[in-house]
Design a protein around this nucleic acid. Structure first.
Lengths: 316, 316
DNA sequence: TTGTAGGCGTTATCAC
DNA sequence: GTGATAACGCCTACAA
C-alpha cells in the first residue's frame, strides 16, 4: 500500500502539498489538487490512521467489552451505542471476553492504543482494575461494577427495579409472585432479588426466589408455591421459562403471567408478546456522552420503564 | 502516558537498551534489566502498538464485521473465531454494521489499518467490493457472498443442506414437510429452499415454503398443508415457531416435529431440546486459518451435521 | 554491555 | 502556492 510520500513523488511534488490537498486545506492550486486527488484514487492511497494517532497522541476509537455468554441484550445495547458513536465521528471497537483475565488484557490493549474511552460490561462483578490502568484509560462500566478508583459505574438502582416489578404485578391483582433468576453473584441479580423481597414484605405478600431454573425445579416450585405471576430476572430467562411452561401445557397469560426485564429488541423479534421493564438505554447513552465530554455522569436516578404487551394479565 | 524514550531518560540510559530489556532480548546486564522493568511497571509504561504497526507495516489484528440484526448465531461464530485467533496471538476487532454503506466504510477502515484479514458476514448479499479494496485487504466472507474479485466466500453447499433436512425427516417417516424461512433475498435462504424443493420432488413428496412467518399465516398453512414436520431455516426461526405453536396449543414433538439449522450455542442454552443441523464451525475456522497462512481454502464440500435432540420424533 | 542513527507514515511549522 | 524539516513512539542495525 502506498504512502503519502510515495504519492507525492509519483506526482512530482512535495509531501506537504499532498497533505494539504488531501485535507481540503487552502494553499493548493486547483490544478495541483485535482492531479493529486486523481492519483490518490487511482493508486488506492489510504492514510494510515496509526501514524496520525502517534502524532496526535489521541485515537478516535472507543473500546467496548462485553461478555461472550447470554449476550443478546448486551449486543443490543452496544449496537445502539455504536450507532451513537458513529454519529460523533468515533468508531466503536468491540471485543467479547469470557473471563476476568481476558477482560483486563483487553483493557490494557485499549489503554495502550490510547482509546478515548472504554465502555464495558464486565464478565463478572467487582473485577479489580489496577490504578495505573484506570488512570491511563477512561472506563465506564454498565450492568456490573468494577472494583477500583476511576471506573464509573452507570446503573439504575436495581433494587428499585425489583420493587417496581412487584408494584406492577400487585397492581394487576397478583398476590403470589415468584422471582426467577440466576445463581451467579452479580450486582443486578442480588439487588433485584433484594428489592423484590423487600417490596413483597412491605405489601404483605409471600415471596420466593428460584435462582437456578430448569424444568423440574420450576414445575416443583409451581406446585408448592402456586404463583400467579413470574417475575424473571431478564427477557432471556422469561423466554426460557415460557418454553418450559409450554412443554408442561401451561398457557401464558391465561394460566400464569410472565414479566421480563430489559426489552431486548432482538428477543422481541422472536417473542413479541413479552411484557417487560425496559432498560433506559437512551439515558445510558446520554450519560456516556457526558463522560466523553469530561462531565461527571450518573443514571442512578433512572428507572426501567414498563412496556405492557400480552404476557401479563389482570388477576381477579 | 510515558514513551520508551522517556522511560530511558528516566533510567538515565539509552532507548536501545530499554527496548532490549522490554523484549527480553540478550545484551542487557541483569541489573540494568531489573531497573528498567521496575521503572516501566512503576511508571505504567505501555508500548504503543500503532508505532510498531507503522514500522512493520503489519498489524496483528483481524477485523470482523457482522450484521446488527438476528445476530445471535453470528455472535456465536465470532466468539469461536475470536478464541481461535487469540490462540494465534491475533486480536479480533469486531464491528456490527447495519447496511452496505457502513459495511464498505468499515472495510476501508480495516484496509487502511493494514489488518491481517477481514472475516465478514455481509448485511446483505452481493455487495460489490471495489477491486482496490480487495487488493489492499484480504477478505473472507461467511454465510453471504460478496461481489467482486478477491473476496473468498467460505460456505457449505446450502442446497445440500435443504436436501439433508428432507432426507433426515423422510427417514423419520415424515411425508408432509413444510419449510419455514425468510423473505429476504440471500444465498443461504434461496439455496436451502431450492434444495428442499428439489429433494421433495425427487422423493415424491409435496412441498411448501412459507417465507414470511407470523402466527396467522402459520396457523392457516398448518390447516391447509397439514405438515407433520417443520424444517426451519435456522434455530432462531425454530424458536419463534415453537412459541407460536405453543400459544396455539400444539405440542412439540407430539403433534408436530421441528428441525432447525445452525446449532447456535446461545440459543441452545434457552431451547435445549431443538434437533438441528449444526454449522461446521470447526471446518470454517480451519479454512480461515488456511487463508491466513496464504493457502487457498474452501468448505464447499462440508455438510451441516445432524444433532438429534427431542424436537423431532418418528412419524408412523 | 551499551549508545547512536535512521526510518516507518503523517502532520504542523516555517521558509521560500 | 509550494517545499523542507522536525516530530510522534518504536524497532533494527551498526558502532563504540
Amino acid at each position: 500500500m502506498i504512502s503519502s510520500l510515495e504519492l507525492a513523488r509519483h506526482c512530482g511534488i512535495s509531501q506537504g502539498t499532498v497533505d494539504r490537498a488531501l485535507h481540503n486545506r487552502p494553499g493548493v492550486s486547483p490544478k495541483t489538487r485535482e492531479k493529486i486527488l486523481r492519483a490518490a484514487k487511482q493508486l488506492g492511497y489510504r492514510p494510515h490512521p496509526a501514524a496520525r494517532e502517534i502524532l496526535t497522541g489521541q485515537s478516535t476509537t472507543v473500546g467496548a467489552i462485553l461478555p461472550t455468554v447470554n449476550n443478546v441484550f448486551f449486543m443490543d445495547v452496544f449496537n445502539r451505542l455504536g450507532h451513537w458513536f458513529s454519529e460523533q465521528g468515533l468508531r466503536l471497537h468491540f471485543t467479547p471476553v469470557e473471563n476476568r483475565l481476558a477482560f483486563l488484557e483487553v483493557l490494557e490493549e485499549f489503554a495502550s492504543r490510547r482509546y478515548r474511552l472504554a465502555v464495558v460490561i464486565p464478565p463478572e462483578d467487582n473485577i479489580p482494575v489496577p490504578q495505573n490502568l484506570a488512570s491511563a484509560l477512561r472506563i465506564v462500566s454498565l450492568i456490573s461494577p468494577c472494583r477500583g478508583k476511576g471506573v464509573d459505574f452507570l446503573s439504575p438502582d436495581e433494587a428499585e427495579t425489583g420493587r417496581d416489578a412487584v408494584r406492577y404485578l400487585h397492581g394487576q391483582g397478583h398476590r403470589r409472585i415468584l422471582h426467577l433468576t440466576y445463581d451467579r453473584p452479580a450486582y443486578a441479580i442480588a439487588a433485584r432479588a433484594a428489592g423484590y423481597k423487600a417490596q413483597c414484605r412491605e405489601m404483605g405478600l409471600a415471596s420466593k426466589v428460584l435462582s437456578f431454573v430448569d424444568a423440574d425445579r420450576l414445575a416443583e416450585t409451581l406446585r408448592s408455591f402456586r404463583p400467579t405471576a413470574l417475575f424473571c430476572h431478564n427477557d432471556w430467562m422469561a423466554l426460557r421459562v415460557q418454553l418450559i411452561l409450554a412443554a408442561q401445557g401451561m398457557r401464558v397469560p391465561e394460566d400464569i403471567s410472565i414479566l421480563g426485564v430489559d426489552d431486548s429488541p432482538t428477543l422481541m423479534a422472536v417473542h413479541p408478546g413479552l411484557t417487560t421493564l425496559a432498560y433506559p438505554v437512551e439515558k445510558a447513552v446520554a450519560a456516556i456522552g457526558d463522560v466523553l465530554a469530561g462531565r461527571t455522569a450518573t443514571i442512578a436516578g433512572e428507572r426501567y420503564q414498563l412496556v405492557e404487551r400480552t404476557s401479563v394479565r389482570k388477576w381477579v
